[in-house]
Design a protein around this nucleic acid. Structure first.
Length: 428
RNA sequence: CGGGGUGUAGCGCAGUCUGGUAGCGCGUUUGUCUGGGGGGCAAAAGGUCGCGGGUUCGAAUCCCGCCACUCCGACCA
């Protein structure tokens, strides 16, 4: 899936002026850069640019989930109401969108998939030998939230990675829970998120006893976190009692804002009990498995990256998440030497399997640079008469997870492919 | 769902109070000059002024109803 594109054909609308209704920096940039387009209140179209970022985040998540033995699958978005009535959540959850078919049957648009996955698992699992296992999916969810906020930070429709594990014992669940916990930190790091922490959280609609949220500490966050020097960390819902004192050590709690970018739960037997999922244990008796679930708001992660890493001109991706690896900009010259060379570099990089964007428009430099900042390819090549006079191509970097001070500012016009491949690996 | 706000050209807005033939900036198209951080000049295209009803000789403007969007709150990946 090698992506290459001329900028004028990229079906994305970058804005010049103000973005009406955007309250956070990240929301503004996401709209201004043309990553997202609001289709309705709480529902965004991911443009070719935004979707390519989301796909990269998804693939990072896939790799890390597969690394902890997760098995990817896909469940239906819409579900008959029966499964939800089995657990009682059809009536107890407020944000389920419900509708009736023409024949009058009740349906829900799944806000999460515990019921659906448990129904599947109980049809598959007969023996203790089949456990433990974890299945996950990356899929669109819909929650009829009362209020939306800040672009992709809080929407009604969103993309979520949801994983579900099944175990014989609480000990085994806890062991796996820890593996997943660690995998989450790897995911966020690979996505380029920096200020991530975990807090104990309330279990809410999901049920169970133990739950953790992964939070990006950021002023724009809608969650309030309480953090203590002794290591105690909790979110507001859990720690709403005497909010100023740590329940562990008695010291003063620090209050910070966070964007929730993941949530994991030790569910216990809430679903397996109510949905009568059993297996035959080693001793021959029928037993009920215990369960964990693991969510990441994928589209929200993209929003969180922009919220955390951006300058006044646009987002700052890393190599793993940027929509293009390299952008080649040809600056107009009278002799018409720069554009043919820009085209050649573009084609050469393309055939090397590098995701590359070409800006060879007959526009002024300022506009091209502004667009480049919004698209934010980590490596920017500028072909101009100025540097061509010395047989050089200028190179600029847009990353914040690597020191680029030792990297070259120009590249020899006769040997750019190897140099660029080397730069890509250095910045990855 | 409560309380505010807004709907006028692709985007951002003025005009509404005080009714009288639809405006500005940016973008788009054409020409031209320019050419390293969103440039200049000239011309052109583009609107049932959110929708429905009412008042009036005449409604973007006044009245009634509806819808959408948005901000703050309650709710949550």
């Amino acid at each position: 899936m090698v992506k290459k594109m001329r900028i004028e054909n990229l079906c994305v609308n970058r804005l010049y002026g103000d973005v009406a209704g955007a309250t956070t920096r990240g929301h503004k940039i996401a709209v201004k850069g043309g990553y997202i387009y609001q289709t309705f209140q709480g529902g965004y179209t991911l443009t070719p640019l935004g979707w390519s970022v989301v796909r990269k985040i998804e693939n990072i998540i896939r790799e890390e989930m597969n690394n902890i033995d997760g098995q990817e699958m896909l469940m239906p978005v819409v579900c008959g109401a029966d499964l939800w009535k089995e657990t009682g959540r059809y009536d107890s959850m407020d944000n389920i969108a419900k509708f009736k078919s023409r024949s009058g049957a009740d349906y829900v648009i799944c806000p999460t998939h515990e019921e659906v996955v448990t129904d599947y698992a109980r049809s598959v699992i007969k023996s203790y030998r089949q456990m433990p296992f974890m299945v996950y999916q990356i899929q669109t969810k819909f929650r009829d939230e009362l209020r939306v906020r800040a672009g992709l930070i809080r929407t009604r429709e969103f993309i979520m990675k949801d994983g579900y594990s099944f175990h014989e014992t609480q000990e085994d669940l806890e062991k796996y829970y820890k593996r997943c916990f660690d995998a989450y930190y790897k995911i966020y790091k690979r996505c380029g998120l920096k200020n991530v922490t975990d807090v104990m959280s309330a279990t809410g609609d999901m049920g169970g006893k133990i739950a953790h949220e992964f939070q990006l500490i950021n002023e724009m966050g809608e969650d309030t976190l309480y953090i203590c020097d002794c290591g105690f960390r909790a979110n507001k819902e859990l720690e709403e009692t005497d909010s100023s004192v740590c329940p562990k050590c008695g010291k003063q709690l620090n209050k910070v804002r966070g964007i929730e970018i993941g949530n994991i739960f030790q569910l216990g037997k809430k679903y397996t009990d109510s949905m009568h999922m059993t297996y035959t244990a080693e001793d021959g008796t029928e037993k009920t498995p215990t369960m964990g679930c693991y969510g990441i708001g994928v589209s929200r992660v993209m929003a969180a990256i922009i919220e955390e890493s951006a300058d006044d001109n646009g987002p700052i991706w890393n190599m793993a998440t940027a929509p293009f690896t390299v952008e080649v900009i040809g600056l107009v010259d009278k002799e018409n030497k720069t554009m043919p060379l820009a085209e050649k570099i573009y084609n050469d990089l393309k055939s090397e399997g590098i995701e590359v964007l070409l800006d060879a428009r007959d526009n002024r430099a300022g506009e091209k640079f502004a667009d480049a900042d919004l698209i934010a390819a980590p490596i920017r090549l500028i072909v101009s008469t100025k540097n061509l006079a010395n047989n050089q191509i200028e190179v600029k970097y847009r990353v914040n997870d690597h020191d680029t001070s030792d990297l070259p500012n120009t590249i020899d016009v006769n040997n750019y492919v190897d140099t660029i491949k080397d730069l890509i690996s250095k910045l990855s």
